[in-house]
């Protein structure tokens, strides 16, 4: 790119350092919004404690006695997935539109910070929160509810988490991009995740539920994510518990989410006319 006279010799700050700083900044912002803290961290934890208190001694599964497995394994894994989803999908779909409505996104776009680093910082912070959430849930599961972890299944568990977290982060960004205002985005995020959780093996097993409930759950990625992760804690499944079909399905949703997010993303509140006006330059400057 051409530069005019009077250019300073100073060099650009490194991208890795900027990304790290942006991630830290987003985590700090998150930490200071009580509602975000509650819905993202506290709610899944409360659900885990309540559901285990009520149903903890039951078993889940279909068929013979040998295929039944303890609910604590089921709930801990299902709610760990729920916690990962609230930290990525719900969190991003809520916070990005709030910052957009406040004009914060537009202001950042006036600075030389490459736009991919701003967005990357928001996504990285949500991934860190999701990982933290999962660790807290599993730790509580092991300590309080006797959760058993099978070493053979750990690789599948980690890959499932990685695919799920990435996909739900992309879907959160897609909702943030498409929904016009912060209040609408908050409604959409909660109205999609909470009802879906009931048909997706998160709050209860839908193995014996009516067919339409099962089909509804099968259409969306939350059930695939929860089931794939639960399998890695299911003692009745032998071996590594890989679920390539489910992972592919989750990833497909994630790719669609990413495409929607990238093509529809807006930096200004809706109605202000500046839609995607600087995409080309953003691409040029992302060095």
């Amino acid at each position: 790119m051409m530069r005019s006279t009077g250019e300073t010799e100073a060099r650009w700050p490194g991208s890795a350092g900027l990304l790290l700083a942006q991630t830290g900044y987003q985590l700090k912002l998150f930490y200071r919004v009580p509602a975000a803290m509650f819905f993202t961290l506290a709610l899944p934890l409360v659900m885990l404690i309540l559901l285990n208190a009520v149903f903890g001694s039951d078993t889940v599964g279909e068929g013979s006695e040998s295929q039944m497995w303890p609910t604590r394994q089921f709930y801990t894994a299902g709610l760990a997935v729920f916690a990962a989803v609230t930290a990525t999908y719900t969190n991003l779909a809520n916070m990005i539109p709030i910052r957009r409505d406040e004009g914060v996104l537009k202001r950042w776009r006036s600075t030389p910070l490459p736009t991919w680093i701003y967005v990357g910082g928001a996504i990285c912070s949500s991934v860190i929160l999701a990982a933290f959430n999962v660790i807290v849930m599993l730790t509580l599961g092991v300590v309080a509810y006797g959760l058993e972890i099978d070493a053979v299944k750990i690789p599948a568990a980690i890959v499932t988490l990685a695919v799920g977290i990435a996909s739900f982060a992309a879907l959160g960004m897609a909702v943030a991009a498409v929904v016009p205002t912060a209040s609408a985005a908050s409604a959409v995020a909660n109205a999609t995740v909470l009802p879906l959780a009931f048909v997706s093996n998160v709050f209860l097993s839908v193995d014996g539920a009516p067919r339409w409930v099962q089909l509804l759950g099968d259409a969306f990625p939350l059930k695939a994510f929860a089931s794939a992760f639960q399998d890695t804690f299911n003692p009745t499944i032998a071996g590594a518990a890989w679920a390539p079909g489910r992972l592919g399905f989750i990833a497909l949703w994630g790719v669609v989410g990413a495409v929607v997010a990238v093509t529809q993303f807006r930096w200004e509140p809706s109605g202000s006319g500046g839609r995607r006006s600087r995409r080309r330059s953003a691409a040029e400057s992302s060095d």
Partner: peptide, 21 residues
């Protein structure tokens, strides 16, 4: 792009400053 934005300062009509910080 980035080079120009390094050399200009912008104060928008809506300040857009994070209230939590």
């Amino acid at each position: 792009g980035r080079d120009l934005r390094d050399r200009i300062g912008v104060v928008l009509q809506t300040s857009g400053v994070e209230p939590e910080l």
